[in-house]
Design a protein around this nucleic acid. Structure first.
Lengths: 65, 65
DNA sequence: ATAAAAATATCCCGATGCGGGATATAGGTG
DNA sequence: CACCTATATCCCGCATCGGGATATTTTTAT
């Protein structure tokens, strides 16, 4: 999950991201640390939010889209 | 999940796909009917297997890659 | 340097939902 | 019809998810 990288590039906090995605700050933290994995619909919401492909988000490719 | 479509285009059964992916036939069935969702690592394995993007697999884009 | 504030990680816990084995139902094929 | 293959469903144990609350770390301001 390239989540932290993406979030930082936007210059926002876990809390702001969480609110924007209708979830919790601790959930974002866990995604970033890899302690938990989001479901597919969440994955799509995140990819939409950062305008990147899911493949990029999960580190399957190097090109954002 | 464009799983059924992809599997059929390969002309293989749920059982064969399941064996190839080291999982169970009923699990594949559930993915196809949408009753259950795979975790990310499984998603990657499936996309690898069919050589398509995850975005395509989950129906987020129309181009396979 | 330190106090306050913001950001992030961790703890606990209930509940959701995953995957497996087994079984039922459907779809051919001879 | 009897048989075989393919797919869906049932039951259930267990893993893991997400939330609230809290601890820890990092930043900011004075």
């Amino acid at each position: 999950m390239r989540l932290r990288e993406l979030r930082k590039s936007k210059g926002i906090s876990q809390l702001k991201l969480a609110l924007d995605l209708n979830t919790n700050q601790n959930t974002i933290s866990r995604y970033e640390t890899g302690e938990r994995e989001p479901c597919i619909s969440e994955l799509i919401r995140i990819a939409d939010y950062f305008d990147v492909s899911i493949d990029y988000l999960v580190g399957r490719t190097d090109s954002p889209r």
